[in-house]
Design a protein around this nucleic acid. Structure first.
Length: 399
DNA sequence: CGCAGTACTAGATTAAACCA
DNA sequence: TGGTTTAATCTAGTACTGCG
């Protein structure tokens, strides 16, 4: 039996909102009507917003009030994000509200369907500086409409698959937390130093520091991949997606290559991100850019320990307070980095910590691979479900 | 004349280049 | 090396324009 298709415009009312004048405080001050912006759309359900507008603002602008249960769909700048309203709220013109009016369509079903065609919709976007799609594109989308029972099956299946993805992410998150708690357990609170380790500065455990190369990197040409600030994550990992390349002659290679066991430190960035620190754990050396500092520890320290220290809550707070914030950019130079006070536990204990970390990282790697599979599975289920490959009317009636 | 559509403006943030 | 300036990018918000 062929699945019936209907236009989204036939099964739902679709309209977008508009922003009340920001210059009129009467529209915004002390408002109690939730105001949804694109950045509020994060998960499947939208529970709360950052801003609110007033009754007056709602009535004197093209802002519209959408009821709980409305599907929100972003149509401007960031296209194709989608969520189900779990509260009554108003939106701006970047977000369309889709109100299902046919009882033959389940809200969640439509939600998953819209997610499954995101790429197609995004590609229809037009615009000079920013892309946008208009409401008629939305209204023209063909929606496959199987029986409610089939819709329910699809919803359940995708919910389950999505749940697995979420759980896996939570496990990875937990492992990252574990790194922190292992550090605290082994060495104690860095501020109180309950185990009375000798105290010194980072300088005492540093063999040398070196700024990276100021050569311009190229998109694809060059002997070495080059690490830039974006490659260090806030959590202290290296992200090798989005690499550029560079050539170094032999005399520069020594200075501007980072080797396994070295520490990388981001000296310039916005105040929050200054001091991002990660251990370089790869076998093959890479180049690194001038706004990163390479720190090679001496015999007293293992870079995993220093990284654990700087990535601890204490370390993050300290770095934040140290960053000199001038015209939006903040700095911590190599000298300041080396002046940071740090407790110095025995080297063998630090090495033990490093080997635990390496175990955790292995497990993390496995989980990441698993996560990738789960996500692929989720996406492929989504695609197949709406092509009618998973459930047909006959199959359901036989079950 | 109201409203949808979209070009334009602007702010926040991040990344990279520059210069003493 | 170190710090400041500039560029790029991403996203939110405003305000015309033209159509029904």
């Amino acid at each position: 039996m062929a699945v019936i298709y209907k236009k989204l415009g036939e099964i739902a009312d679709i309209s977008s909102g508009g922003t009340p004048k920001r210059t009129n405080p009467a529209y915004w001050k002390n408002g109690n009507i939730p105001w949804v912006k694109i950045s509020d759309i994060k998960g499947k359900y939208l529970e709360k917003t950052e801003e609110f507008i007033t009754e007056e603002g709602l009535n004197n602008s093209s802002a519209k009030l959408f009821k709980k249960g409305t599907l929100l769909y972003t149509i401007f700048a960031t296209i194709g994000e989608c969520a189900i309203l779990n509260i009554d709220a108003s939106t701006n013109q970047a977000i369309a509200g889709i109100n299902v009016k046919s009882e033959k369509v389940l809200n969640e079903y439509l939600y998953y369907f819209l997610k499954s065609i995101k790429n197609t919709v995004v590609n229809t976007g037009r615009g000079v500086a920013q892309n946008n799609i208009n409401l008629s594109i939305l209204k023209n989308i063909d929606v496959p409409l199987p029986e409610i029972e089939v819709q329910n099956r699809i919803i359940n299946l995708l919910n389950k698959s999505n749940e697995l993805v979420k759980k896996c992410k939570a496990q990875i998150e937990a492992l990252d937390q574990l790194t922190q708690s292992v550090f605290l357990e082994m060495f104690g609170d860095p501020y109180k130093n309950p185990k009375n380790w000798p105290v010194g500065t980072i300088k005492d455990i540093t063999l040398k520091t070196q700024y990276g190369t100021s050569k311009k990197a190229s998109e694809n040409k060059g002997k070495y991949p080059i690490l830039r600030m974006g490659n260090i994550t806030y959590n202290g990992f290296l992200d090798f997606n989005d690499m550029k390349y560079i050539d170094l002659d032999d005399s520069e290679a020594e200075k501007y290559l980072v080797h396994k066991g070295d520490l990388l430190f981001n000296r310039t960035n916005s105040k929050e991100l200054v001091g991002k620190t990660a251990v370089y754990r790869e076998e093959l050396p890479m180049a690194y850019a001038g706004y990163l500092v390479k720190l090679v520890p001496n015999e007293k320290a293992n870079s995993e320990f220093i990284s654990g220290f700087l990535n601890s809550k204490y370390g993050k707070t300290l770095l934040y307070s140290m960053a000199k914030n001038i015209v939006g950019m903040a700095n911590i130079n190599a000298e300041e980095l080396k002046r940071i006070k740090i407790y110095i536990p025995p080297r063998d204990l630090q090495d033990k910590f490093a080997s635990i970390i390496s175990n955790i990282l292995e497990r993390r790697e496995l989980l990441n691979k698993g996560l990738k599979l789960l996500e692929e599975n989720y996406n492929s289920l989504m695609q197949r479900a709406f092509k009618g490959e998973l459930f047909t009317e006959e199959k359901v009636s036989n079950l």
